[in-house]
Design a protein around this nucleic acid. Structure first.
Lengths: 109, 109
DNA sequence: AAGGTCTTTAACCGATCAGTTAAGTAACGA
DNA sequence: TCGTTACTTAACTGATCGGTTAAAGACCTT
């Protein structure tokens, strides 16, 4: 389980970690702020953050004694890209949508 | 870890299971066929299939002594939908793309 | 009914996971 | 320098995970 996608998906497999990401979508936050909504200890949160950081889903900074976390969604793009391969299996309008996206691509160039 | 998304993401967190899904994208297959590329025992594959089935990522049928698996990508749609919330954090062209998709929606109605 | 093929279940094992408490580290403020 | 706030590391625990081998089902063929 050393590959990138596995690390990303298993980071996302935990509801606490997904909730942390949701919170971070609203802006940077310190460890204590992130811990506040949960009924688990700070060390537990600290390790969740380490998992998210390891997956590249957050980056961390230090300001005085506070360690701030910041959302980095690039891994989500990778995970989404992997799933896109299966889009035709669920999306009836895939062909149409695909055409639109292709058009958009062409517009850009 | 009883929620649907967690079950889906942890099913996807294993490379063997993702490879099985990739194989199934090419069509239905029996357990032995699915096991063939891997260097692990049949019971191990059998349990991977149970995990995928439990996540709703495959459905299974019986034909004589063969149990065929079939890709069901709906959970991938759900997972993608969850990640979409973060799209603006990675996709520079999100606004533009979003506009296009909205236009597509309106066309449909 | 007996034997063969395909698959699952059971029992076990070592590793990893998510949590705990207790102790350690880092930076500030008096 | 001492105390306080913020966070991490260490050591432990019980549960889950991914694999194994051995035995049990399920269905076909003869």
């Amino acid at each position: 389980m050393t590959d990138r996608l596995s690390v990303i998906f298993s980071a996302l497999a935990d509801p606490t970690r997904r909730a942390i990401l949701a919170r971070l979508a609203e802006g940077e936050a310190t460890v204590t702020e992130l811990a506040e909504p949960f009924d688990i200890s700070l060390p537990a949160i600290s390790r969740h953050l380490k998992v998210l950081e390891h997956a590249g889903l957050i980056s961390r900074g230090r300001t005085a004694q506070w360690r701030t976390s910041r959302l980095e969604a690039e891994p989500l793009r990778e995970a989404t890209a992997w799933m896109e391969r299966y889009r035709r299996f669920w999306d009836e309008n895939f062909a149409r949508l695909d055409a639109h996206l292709k058009r958009l691509q062409e517009e850009k160039s």
